[in-house]
Structures are given as structure tokens and as C-alpha cells.
């Protein structure tokens, strides 16, 4: 009895506030825009009994999805989000792996400090960390001042409000998500394996490539998902650092909803984004469960 209530409270909470809302999004994505409150039609009217339900059901159609398919803007936004998310995940891996690797090689007494230094930005406001780059990357910003002072460039570089600034922003804010799982995987690695590889005549680089890399695979996978999935739907970074040409689906959804007040189209955009992300989310969850079983 007690077990049942223990299970059912968080279960029902998540059903009501996580799963049911998605069903509502799905339903509204099949509705039509209307000049009313709420701004869509049909609305379910149960006071008429079955007739109301039948009328509601008949009013749903795929119109919004056809609209998305026909309008190039949405295709481009999905593709460009995918490109930005993939590129920045690879860049984060490229920056994060050496940091995680360096952390495992550092003396034991440095460990807690290094861990804290990686985690500290994670506790600091995401919005503030993105904002910090605005003053650095702008045309009269500190990066351009520095580069011009040392004479590397004579004209200020235009970085802010371009895709490059978005890449920098994503790598910067998601770096701890990449470093921590890789560090955890590398930390579990048995050092004697590397010694064995070196004894058997591997150079350090080959040993790294043949032993360390494959054994840290799960950390790389976990870290990449933790960067890629949220980056796909990112809104704050393109809104603050990107330009008018930066097309990302999170921004499109936001504008459909808040500026155009087109709830059905915003819902349809969300449904497709979710469909695109379901495969990576399921893979991520499998990876986590596998890791947990390996530990438990």
C-alpha cells in the first residue's frame, strides 16, 4: 500500500505536468489559428456530449504541418539548427576532452580544486555567462581592442551577431556538461592497462588512441548528447549573440508564439523538433541506464 503511494505521487506528477502537456501541444498543432481567446479552434466542448466530441475531432487536421513543409523558412531553420548543434558539439568535445584528460593526469591534491573550477560556472547563471560575451565580442569590444593593440588586425572583426558568436556561446556555456562525463569515464580507467600497452611497445600516442579513447567512449557519448540535444532547441544564445541571419528553431518557435501569437504553428514547430530529438533522447537514456548497470 505504502509502496503504491510512494510510486504514484511522483508518477502522477510527471504524467500530469510532463506527458499530458505534450498531448495538448500535439492537439493544438492539429488545430487552426483563430482570433479568439485562446487563439485556436476547435475547442473541446463537453457540455454537448458526444456531439461536441465528434465536432472537436472533425476539426483537427494536418494543415499546420503542410504549412511548415511548404514554407522554406522552417526547413532552413531545422537544418541550420542541426548544423549549429552538430558543429558546436564537436567543438565542445575538442575543447573539453583535453581539459578532462588533463584533470585525470593532475596530482591527487589538485583534484578537488579542479573539479570545483569546472562545476562553479555550471552553478553561475547561464544568462549572465552568455551576456558576458557580448562585451567581449562586439565591434568596439575587448577582443577587438586587444587584437588591434597588438597589431594583429587593423580593422575590427565582426563576430557579435554572427554564427561564430553562437558557436562560441554554446561551447562556453555547455563545456562543463562535456568535461564532467568524460572526466568520470577517464577517472575509472585502470592505469595498468596503459602501462601494459607501453610495455608491449606502444608509443604514448598510440596507447592513448588504442586504450584511453575507446575506454572513455561512454563519457564522450554522454557528454555529446548533453550538449547536442539542448543546443538543437537553444533560444537564449542565438537571441543574444546571434544575428538576424542566425536561424535556429528555438528562436523561430519563440517568435511564432510571442510575436505572431500563432499558437497552432508554434505547437507544430515543437512537435517536429521533438520528433527529431526523440532518437537522440532515447539513445542518451539507454547510455545512462547502461552506465548505471555497469556501476551498480
Amino acid at each position: 500500500m505504502r509502496r503504491l503511494s510512494l510510486i504514484s505521487v511522483p508518477y502522477l506528477w510527471l504524467l500530469a505536468l510532463f506527458l499530458v502537456p505534450f498531448l495538448i501541444v500535439l492537439k493544438i498543432s492539429l488545430s487552426d489559428t483563430a482570433l479568439a481567446i485562446p487563439p485556436y479552434t476547435p475547442t473541446l466542448d463537453l457540455s454537448q456530449g458526444w456531439a461536441g466530441l465528434a465536432q472537436w475531432w472533425a476539426g483537427l487536421d494536418m494543415e499546420n504541418f503542410w504549412f511548415l513543409a511548404e514554407d522554406n523558412l522552417y526547413w532552413k531553420a531545422y537544418l541550420s539548427s542541426l548544423k549549429i548543434a552538430v558543429t558546436s558539439t564537436l567543438l565542445t568535445l575538442l575543447v573539453g576532452y583535453p581539459i578532462a584528460y588533463g584533470m585525470t593526469r593532475a596530482p591527487d591534491e589538485w583534484r578537488p580544486t579542479l573539479m570545483m573550477l569546472v562545476i562553479l560556472p555550471f552553478w553561475t547563471s547561464f544568462l549572465i555567462r552568455v551576456y558576458a560575451w557580448k562585451a567581449i565580442l562586439s565591434q568596439e569590444g575587448l577582443l577587438n581592442q586587444l587584437l588591434m593593440n597588438i597589431g594583429l588586425i587593423s580593422e575590427p572583426l565582426i563576430i557579435l551577431n554572427t554564427n561564430l558568436a553562437v558557436y562560441i556561446g554554446i561551447v562556453y556555456t555547455y563545456l562543463p556538461f562535456m568535461v564532467l562525463p568524460i572526466f568520470a569515464a577517464l577517472d575509472r580507467l585502470d592505469g595498468s592497462l596503459l602501462e601494459a600497452a607501453e610495455d608491449l611497445g606502444c608509443s604514448r600516442l598510440t596507447a592513448f588512441w588504442l586504450v584511453t579513447m575507446p575506454l572513455s567512449k561512454q563519457g564522450i557519448i554522454a557528454g555529446s548528447f548533453l550538449v547536442f540535444i539542448p543546443a538543437m532547441g537553444e533560444f537564449v544564445i542565438p537571441a543574444l549573440l546571434g544575428g538576424s541571419k542566425t536561424l535556429m528553431i528555438g528562436k523561430v518557435l519563440w517568435e511564432e508564439f510571442f510575436s505572431n501569437r500563432d499558437w497552432p504553428v508554434a505547437s507544430a514547430v515543437a512537435v517536429i523538433l521533438l520528433l527529431l530529438l526523440i532518437i537522440p533522447i532515447v539513445l542518451f537514456q539507454r547510455n545512462e541506464e547502461k552506465q548505471r548497470e555497469a556501476e551498480g
Binding site: V25, G233, A270, Q285
Partner: peptide
């Protein structure tokens, strides 16, 4: 329903915030 439960625990960790926000708003209005 254990699989569904663990799915609902892990999915919000990586779910784009725009989707979570939109879906909750539509629930509150409904």
C-alpha cells in the same frame, strides 16, 4: 510502467526549454 517512468525522469534533463515551456503554458491555459 517503469520504462515510461524512467523516460519521464530523464527526458526533461535534455528537453529543449522552449518545448517544456510551451507545453506547460498550454496545459495551464487548458
Amino acid at each position: 510502467g517503469r520504462t515510461l517512468f524512467s523516460g519521464m525522469i530523464y527526458a526533461p534533463l535534455v528537453m529543449p526549454e522552449v518545448i517544456t515551456g510551451l507545453s506547460l503554458l498550454l496545459l495551464f491555459i487548458a
